[in-house]
Simulated scan of single mutants.
Amino acid sequence: MYRFAIPAGKMGRLGLVALAVVAIPAASAFASAEDPTAKLSAEQVEKGRQMFSDNGCNSCHTLADAKAAGSVGPSFDGNANIDKAHVVDMVTNGQGAMPSFSWLDPADIDLLASYIVQAKK
Rank of each mutant, 00 (worst) to 15 (best):
A20G: 13
F4K: 03
L19A: 14
D83G: 04
P74F: 12
P36Q: 14
F4P: 00
A26N: 08
D108E: 15
L16N: 01
N93R: 10
V88W: 04
G96A: 05
P7H: 12
D35W: 08
I109K: 06
V22Y: 14
S32Y: 12
P106W: 13
S32V: 13
A23R: 02
I6Q: 02
Q50R: 06
I6F: 05
G48R: 02
A29C: 08
A64T: 13
D89W: 09
G12K: 13
M51C: 00
N81D: 14
C60P: 01
N55Q: 03
S75I: 06
P99R: 05
L111F: 04
M51T: 02
A42N: 10
Q95L: 08
W103Q: 04
N58W: 09
A31H: 09
L63S: 05
D89I: 00
G70H: 07
G78P: 03
G70A: 08
A107Q: 14
D54G: 03
D65W: 01
D77M: 12
R3W: 14
N81I: 00
V87I: 13
A8I: 06
R49E: 11
E46I: 00
A64D: 14
K120S: 13
N79G: 02
A66M: 08
S28M: 15
A68I: 07
A20R: 02
R13L: 11
H86A: 08
G78W: 08
A31L: 15
D54Q: 12
L40K: 07
F101D: 03
S100E: 10
F30V: 13
M11P: 00
A23T: 05
G9S: 13
A80Q: 09
G48L: 08
M51H: 00
A119T: 01
G48K: 04
V72I: 11
A68Y: 05
P74N: 07
S75V: 07
L63M: 10
T62Y: 07
Q44G: 01
G94K: 02
E46R: 05
L63H: 03
I116L: 04
V91A: 09
S41F: 11
L63E: 07
D54F: 05
M51W: 03
F30T: 06
